[in-house]
Amino acid sequence: MMNIALLVWRQKNRADKGRFERYEAKDISHEMSFLEMLDVVNEGLIKDGKEPIAFDHDCREGICGMCSQVINGTPHGPAERTTVCQLHMRNFKDGDVIYIEPWRAKAFPVIKDLIVDRSALDRIIQAGGYISVHTGGVPDANAILISKPDADTAMDAAECIGCGACVAACPNGSAMLFTSAKVIHLANLPQGKIEAVRRVCMMTEAMQKEGFGACSNHYECQAACPKGIKVSFISALNREFVKAQFK
């Protein structure tokens, strides 16, 4: 059991200025997840007649990409390749002071407390993050052969859960890692190559329009990514982009 002090960003709504508030989390078990610890704090706040801390979460098994907190200056907290919901309190010790902040980026306005609006990522996908196939009328699945290395690379890229930690970690608030993961997932597949030129241009342009910054190759994104999406995908996106200029 341990006692921990939390400094949590509280912001009533988009217009509110926001501030940090301090809470004491008492008798926290090492086996708890970070969000379960916040649950306990919130139960206490409710009983004290205060407003609980609002935070995004859903599947709590590290796959839906909903949870989004910067913990002591690191998106998703100190454990590598781990979402907040999968972060367990054994990563902390008694007496720790923990800062909890929302994702910060121009493209991610704060809605309330730790909840931000990430719809900009959806709009990047809408700009071209798909293969324009109709339902039905497709060939047999085994008619499209894909070499194992290509399939594996596509899968590596497709693991992105769209949580936005890359944007949160990036000093430029850039969504290049997110965008590149989708571009490279599809560009590695024969059925996705057909639209590759259009896709890379449309998606990066959409990213710019949403107010995300450019990539300065700090590689903070890869370090923060809970799924280990690699910055080599950004290089590959750039390659696709260069290729697109000659087509």
């Binding site: 200056g73 690191t74 910054g213 903070e220």
Partner: peptide
Amino acid sequence: NKDSKPVPYAVKKSLR
């Protein structure tokens, strides 16, 4: 790029 990150973190660790 500066404009894309208007609000800084109170605590920020550099990872890479």
